[in-house]
Design a binder for these strands. Structure first.
Lengths: 78, 78
DNA sequence: TCCCGAATTATCGTAAAACAATAATTTTGT
DNA sequence: ACAAAATTATTGTTTTACGATAATTCGGGA
């Protein structure tokens, strides 16, 4: 995916576990895991908001564009 | 909202109109307007991907956390 | 090498909302 | 004043975020 999720590295930098963050944010560990592993297809601003708040970081620290236009979702593929 | 959308300024910096971007991204002008004005509650990564690609910018240029924990969506409010 | 807690993965269900399509109204630049 | 751009409004469809739950796997001690 062209938009990459860097939750893992920010968590590590903060010395926080997924479990702790999920508790703070109020999201299940399962869903945080999906987000963390890049399997989520989108996200609510309210969720990014809480994540950034509790990790004390900015959106750009967690989500980054790798320069590639992903066409996985353009009808005609596969 | 604690997650702010800076589409307007990036567009301006690129000298591009909303109409042009909506055509490139493949989203309606109406929906881009909602996003641009901060009325959207979330976004798909596929959409951010295209926006970043066509505006040649990173996620952090468009979405920023203003440091405030927004509670507008926490059951008990209002 | 057991344990145990953390993390991942998988299912199923629900509610939210992204986005399309369309059209009307408003704003803005010239 | 005019035309293009942008906003706003409506309605409908479909995606999917996220909850709840549970089973499986991974990882670091003791």
């Amino acid at each position: 995916m062209a938009i990459k999720v860097y939750l893992e590295e920010v968590l590590k930098a903060r010395g926080m576990t997924s479990k702790e963050l999920s508790a703070l944010v109020g999201i299940t560990e399962a869903n945080l895991s999906i987000l963390r592993s890049g399997k989520a297809k989108g996200i609510r601003f309210s969720t990014i908001n809480k994540i950034c708040y509790y990790l004390n970081c900015d959106v750009g620290d967690i989500l980054k564009f790798d320069g590639i236009l992903d066409m996985e979702d353009t009808e005609d593929h596969e």
